[in-house]
């Protein structure tokens, strides 16, 4: 596997720290960002090696193969999004078409181009109150896209030491603890979260994130009707009553996604970018 050495930067970092001299530390600090930044454009993305995971959206689902892809280390920040709307007036709060975002769009900002009194803190915190359409438009300007649901879920199986931590009840407990916490007014920065084994931060615990195909979660191959969601939920509920809480956090994410509309702007919903490892030309003129 070409990507099997994916964990090397972190391990190398740990070993070097044991020997630590000031000199090596400096070298490591200088090299680490380069190692983590394996995206074609040298941006703040990491390569998520391909693999497979078992999604929740179908009963007795088979494992889904996920091709390698690049994922942003952190969710997009208010500061980054501000630069985008500065350059693209049609995505400013006062200009945006209602098809693309509802009235809550960027409502935590003081104005079109004004983050308000908390600007300094807000600039580095993840942007929320952004719609699916807006998230896509932002990413398109960078040659990125939203991660697919399978990609996001697959990446989100990792913790600080393991690419797949889903067999560990403690992993799920941490996520569920976050889901149980009331929303905070101010979000911390993603940088304040530990990096997972691949260098990705805050997939859990900071904000919910848009996925490209959030509208696919509620249909199954068996049924072409519109009543499948309830059945899906009961399937998940069945998993729960069978005493397997491992999928419960994922179940909540699917349920959350299926409650969304493309123009919803929600106070704790942000996004991060992805890019295919072998990008096929993205065929998509978007407004």
């Amino acid at each position: 596997m070409r990507w099997a050495n994916d964990r090397l930067p972190l391990e190398a970092f740990c070993k070097l720290r044991i020997r630590q001299t000031v000199k090596t530390l400096f070298i490591v600090l200088a090299v680490l960002p380069i190692l983590a930044t394996s995206s074609p454009n040298g941006e703040d993305m990491v390569l998520i090696p391909g693999g497979s995971y078992t999604p929740l959206y179908e009963k007795d689902a088979a494992a889904v193969t996920v091709e390698p892809f690049y994922l942003d280390v952190s969710p997009v920040t208010n500061g980054q999004y501000l630069e985008f709307v500065r350059a693209h007036p049609e995505w400013r709060r006062s200009q945006i078409k209602t098809l693309f975002a509802d009235a809550n769009y960027l409502k935590h900002w003081a104005g079109d181009l004004d983050l308000g009194p908390d600007a300094a803190q807000l600039a580095d915190a993840p942007v929320t109150n952004v719609s699916w359409f807006a998230a896509r438009a932002y990413l398109k300007t960078l040659g990125k896209r939203l991660p697919n649901m399978d990609e996001w879920e697959y990446a989100a199986c990792a913790d600080e030491t393991r690419p797949d931590a889903t067999a560990d009840p403690e992993f799920h407990r941490r996520i569920l603890n976050w889901y149980g916490k009331p929303n905070t007014e101010k979000f911390p920065t993603a940088a304040s979260f530990p990096a997972d084994v691949r260098g990705v931060r805050a997939l859990h615990g900071l904000v919910w994130e848009w996925v490209r195909d959030f509208n696919n979660a509620t249909v199954t191959g068996e049924s072409r009707g519109d009543t499948t969601l309830e059945r899906n939920l009961f399937c998940a509920g069945g998993a729960l009553s069978a005493g397997d809480p491992s999928n419960y956090a994922a179940f909540m994410r699917y349920a959350f996604r299926s409650s969304l509309k493309g123009n919803y702007a929600v106070g704790n919903l942000g996004f991060r970018g992805a890019r295919s490892f072998n990008p096929t030309p993205d065929t998509n003129p978007t407004p």
Partner: peptide, 29 residues
């Protein structure tokens, strides 16, 4: 509390599809 009232994850979507407001013709595809 976390997901804001209307996007609460524990709420099943209504029968009605989740349509966007505004004009479909604003899509430039």
């Amino acid at each position: 509390v976390l997901a804001e009232d209307r996007a609460a994850a524990t709420t099943l979507p209504a029968e009605k599809p989740a349509v966007a407001d505004g004009s479909i013709y604003d899509l430039t595809s």
